[in-house]
Simulated scan of single mutants.
Amino acid sequence: MAPTARQHQEALQFKLILAATYPFFLAAAAVARITHGREPARAGLPAQHRSVFGEARAMAVQAIPFAFMG
């Protein structure tokens, strides 16, 4: 398979996995927001003011690459 075709296929797989897992991460982000509120700034970094949707996407984007390892 050509490198560009492989990259396109991996990008498509990433988007499909993101779409499939996003509802779970959205639920997790909503529960975390309800139970813990906003997290304080850590290690001198400024506190991030993301929406629940942005937080869910960030969690999914951090977790999904592990599916491609191996």
Results as ranks from 00 to 15, higher is better:
Thr35Gln: 14
Arg50Gln: 11
Ala29Trp: 00
Phe66Gly: 10
Lys15Pro: 05
Ala2Met: 04
His8Leu: 13
Glu10His: 05
Ala19Ile: 10
Pro23Thr: 11
Thr21Pro: 01
Ala58Trp: 00
Leu12Trp: 00
Thr21Gln: 08
Leu16Cys: 15
Ala43Glu: 12
Arg33Tyr: 06
Gln48Gly: 08
Gly54Ala: 08
Arg57Ala: 12
Ala47Lys: 13
Ala47Tyr: 01
Arg38Gly: 09
Ala27Trp: 13
Leu16Pro: 02
Arg33Thr: 11
Leu26Gly: 02
Val61Trp: 03
Ala43Leu: 12
Gln62Tyr: 11
Ala30Cys: 08
Ile17Phe: 11
Pro40His: 01
Ser51Glu: 08
Phe66Glu: 11
Ile17Ser: 04
Ala29His: 00
Ala11Cys: 10
Glu39Leu: 15
Met69Phe: 06
Ala32Ser: 06
His8Tyr: 05
Ile17Thr: 13
Ala2Cys: 03
Ala41Phe: 00
Leu18Ile: 14
Ala56Tyr: 02
Lys15Asp: 13
Ala30Met: 07
Leu18Asp: 01
Val52Arg: 01
Ala20Glu: 06
Pro23Gln: 04
Val52Asp: 01
Ala19Gly: 10
Met1Glu: 13
Leu18Pro: 04
Leu12Gly: 07
Gln7Asn: 04
Phe66Tyr: 06
Ala27Met: 08
Arg38Gln: 13
Gln13Trp: 05
Ala56Gln: 00
Val31Leu: 08
His49Asp: 15
Glu39Arg: 09
Thr4Ala: 09
Arg6Thr: 15
Gln48Trp: 01
Gln62Thr: 07
Arg38Lys: 06
Glu39Asp: 14
Phe53Met: 06
Phe25Met: 02
Ala32Asn: 05
His36Tyr: 14
Ala20Phe: 12
Pro65His: 02
Pro3Val: 09
Ile64Ala: 03
Arg38Leu: 09
Phe14Lys: 03
Ala27Thr: 12
His36Ile: 11
Leu16Thr: 14
Ala20Arg: 06
Gln13Thr: 14
Ala60Ile: 06
Ser51Cys: 07
Glu55Ala: 06
His8Ile: 08
Ala20Gln: 11
Ala20Cys: 03
Gly70Thr: 09
Ala30Gly: 06
Val61Tyr: 05
Val61Leu: 07
Leu12Ala: 13
Arg42Glu: 14
Arg42Leu: 15
Lys15Phe: 03
Arg38Cys: 11
Gln62Arg: 06
His36Pro: 07
Ala30Ile: 12
Val52Trp: 02
Ala58Met: 08
Ala19Leu: 09
Pro40Ser: 07
Gln62Trp: 09
Met1His: 05
Phe24Ser: 06
Pro23Ala: 04
Val52Phe: 01
Arg6Tyr: 13
Arg38Trp: 08
Leu16Tyr: 06
His49Tyr: 15
Ala60Gly: 00
Arg6Ile: 14
Pro40Asp: 12
Gln48Ala: 15
His49Thr: 12
Phe24Ile: 13
Ala2His: 05
Ala63Phe: 15
Met69Val: 13
Ala29Thr: 03
Arg57Glu: 10
Ala60Glu: 02
Ala19Pro: 13
Arg38Asn: 09
Met1Ala: 10
Gln9Ile: 12
Arg42Pro: 02
Phe25Ser: 01
